[in-house]
Design a protein around this nucleic acid. Structure first.
Length: 674
DNA sequence: TGTTATCGGC
């Protein structure tokens, strides 16, 4: 039986011209399947999980037909082959695709353009681009359908260089590109921000009379928007003979990404006037622009009124939008109401909890994703959950995530590596952070360097961040604001004021950067903590940013407390209370300034005001990990089951410390008004 | 055979 299949295959292919591509296709793709084509077993396996018995019967009957037919090419067998291929496309079954491909060769249709288009589609659907390309290369006389199919197959898998080479070959061939070709290639130009090629395509579209096709024009709008040529995009949009919802969405996306929010709402108003019904894509884009609940609720209401299903896109966008507004209960409800959840919806929930400081909940959801829905985390899930390990001091989980990423060969993933550096260094594990940083598998960007510099700085090191800074400059990497935050904090701790001011001047003069509020706070902290309070105040007055924020005055305040400068402390407190009247920490700070100077009336006055405003400061806490379990505790906390034992050990240690000559420094001890 | 959108890093 095997022999006869092989011979049949040979009989119908030997007449063809055996180019290199044809023989490669034959040897690598077809031949292994010719010997299996007569067996029903793969077919049954492919349908093992299908409940549609009609479909199964149709396939089995179709297969038997092929096996009992004379295997001579005929119009009927073309139709059957096409049906077979379409089923393979629908089921994304590589096995059926291979069998169909083998039959194409047996029946002598290897040069049939129509069938080959479907073969390219089925291989592309099954993630077999190289096989799709072999089919394309096998065809001697290629029509525009074949060119378009192979180009769009590459585009689908975000491969940009090869389809551009093919497009150039197409332009040099006898075949003329059409609106399908233009839309695919314009998408590539958009991804590569290649406006020059995009513009050439627009000229060619006009020359060849394809300048009225709505899909190609939509792709042109997207290309112009990605290249930030918004005026050109709008011109295309305004002059379009017909628009569909994708045209509106493309234009909205262009304005939204460049921050032209007024234009977005103007377009929405225009949609309303022209009675264009917005779809899920419009809703997702509008939700992404919502920075307050007064905007989200009406959009959510529109979504419910239109009756759009909570698909993955809309669902995860809603979850994310509500989470960013701190409305986590609504995010959770949306997530629970979704019929189907995927890795993105779950990750949105994880990120929402982690970003709002709910670390335990973030870890819980991260575990539920795997236990309830058996969904494997992706790279973004790991990046989202890593910050939750930090406040919990969970080094073990951080290492587990690192191990998981290595097992999945995600070492080259830049954002994941950067997050690992950050998490490891904040958990005090500088060796591990440096190990990730030194991994040559991933291409370091400014965030990688900044993460490592900040990591060293947070752990009190001075020489290392400076060496790294010099190294990154030598490599031609432009530092950003966070790099300077790291380097200035290191200078502050090392009492290297003038060196720090040199870095600050380097930032503003050589790099022409506008310092952020965080950088300014670092400078104030550096000057203040080293006793130069007046210089710090002068710096605040000279700041180029609009209004010094709480972090700037907070840095000055801490320095005032450290150096017992009551007047400066009162001044900083005044600004802090003006900026954030509901923040209890500022009242406690002011109270501490008075207490440090023995001004007890001031202390009572501040505490009374705090009480009247109903404010209560949450006390800070520390934690320790024992046998992989995190134990957190407050000052004088006695809630732990082993509390009496812990305090007994502590008392003994204090005695030993005193005996060794160590006395506690209580001058700067703050008092929390709990 | 083509177009529009969701989660993440210092």
């Amino acid at each position: 039986m095997l022999r006869s299949s092989w011979i049949l295959g040979f009989r119908f292919t030997r007449k063809l011209y055996f180019s290199r591509a044809i023989s490669t296709t034959y040897v690598n793709v077809i031949h292994p399947h010719l010997i299996r084509v007569r067996s029903l077993q793969p077919l049954n396996q492919a349908f093992a999980h299908t409940s549609d018995q009609g479909l199964v019967r149709k396939h089995v009957l179709g297969f038997r037909y092929f096996m009992t037919a004379t295997l001579e090419p005929s119009a009927t067998s073309i139709d059957d082959l096409l049906a077979y291929l379409r089923h393979a496309i629908g089921l994304r079954s590589l096995q059926l695709a291979r069998q169909a491909h083998a039959l194409v060769w047996i029946l002598g249709f290897a040069q049939n353009q129509f069938i080959s288009v479907n073969l390219i589609t089925v291989y592309s659907t099954c993630n077999k681009l190289s096989d799709a390309r072999l089919v394309f290369d096998t065809i001697q006389w290629k029509n525009i359908f074949l060119w378009n199919s192979i180009i769009s197959a590459y585009v689908k898998y975000t491969v940009w260089d090869e389809p551009l080479i093919l497009y150039d070959k197409l332009l040099n061939s006898d075949v003329r590109p059409d609106h399908f070709t233009f839309s695919s290639v314009l998408k590539i130009c958009a991804e590569l921000c290649d406006s020059l090629r995009g513009e050439k395509i627009r000229v060619l579209m006009e020359k060849t009379g394809f300048c009225s096709d709505v899909v190609a024009l939509n792709a042109l709008i997207v290309m112009y928007c990605k290249c930030e040529w918004l005026t050109f995009a709008r011109k295309v949009f305004d002059e379009m003979p017909d628009r569909n919802i994708a045209s509106w969405n493309a234009m909205i996306s262009g304005y939204a990404k460049l921050g032209s929010i007024n234009e977005v709402w103007e377009l929405v108003r225009q949609m309303h006037l022209e009675r264009v019904i917005l779809d899920g894509v419009t809703v997702v884009q509008l939700l992404s622009l919502c920075n307050n609940k007064n905007l989200v609720f009406p959009i959510h209401a529109v979504l419910l009124r239109i009756g759009l299903d909570l698909d993955f896109h809309i669902g995860s966008c809603l979850i994310d939008t509500y989470a960013k507004l701190g409305k986590l209960a609504i995010s959770r409800r949306v997530h629970e109401l979704m019929q189907c959840r995927n890795v993105v919806t779950w990750t949105s929930m994880v990120a929402g909890y982690a970003q709002n400081g709910y670390s335990y909940e973030a870890l819980e959801v991260f575990r539920e994703m795997q236990s309830i829905d058996t969904i494997k985390p992706n790279k973004v899930s790991l990046v989202s959950v890593l910050p939750a390990c930090i406040p919990l001091g969970d080094l073990t989980l951080c290492k587990q995530i690192h191990g998981f990423s290595i097992r999945n060969q995600w070492n080259s993933e830049i954002s994941l590596s950067n997050s690992l550096i950050d998490a490891y260094s904040k958990l005090g594990c500088l060796d591990h952070a440096r190990c990730v940083f030194d991994d040559i598998c991933y291409e370091h960007d400014v965030i990688s360097w900044s993460s490592m510099i900040v990591g060293y700085s947070l752990n009190g090191l001075v020489k290392e961040p400076m060496l790294l800074f010099d190294e990154m400059i030598q490599l031609g990497i432009k530092p950003d604001n966070i790099t300077f935050v790291g380097i200035l904090s290191a200078c502050a701790r090392a009492r290297m004021i003038e060196k720090g001011m040199e870095y600050y001047n380097l930032m503003t003069t050589k790099y022409g950067m506008v310092p952020t509020m965080e950088v300014c706070s670092c400078v104030v902290d550096m000057l203040g903590r080293n006793g130069q309070l007046n210089r710090a105040l002068d710096f605040i007055k000279s700041m180029s940013i609009d209004e010094p924020g709480p972090s700037v005055w907070g840095a000055l305040f801490s320095a005032s407390l450290l150096h017992e400068n009551v007047e400066m402390g009162k001044l900083a407190s005044k600004y802090l209370l003006e900026l954030e009247p509901q923040n209890p920490a500022h009242y406690v700070s002011l109270s501490n300034v008075y207490a440090a100077s023995g001004i007890w009336d001031g202390v009572s006055e501040v505490r009374l005001e705090m009480k009247e405003r109903g404010l209560r400061k949450l006390p800070g806490y520390s934690w320790i990990i024992v046998n992989s379990k995190v134990h957190s505790f407050y000052v004088s906390d006695k809630s732990h089951p082993s509390s009496s034992l812990i305090y007994a050990v502590l008392d003994r240690m204090i005695l030993e410390m005193k005996g060794a000559g160590y006395a506690p420094e209580i001058k700067c001890l703050s008092q929390d008004a709990c």
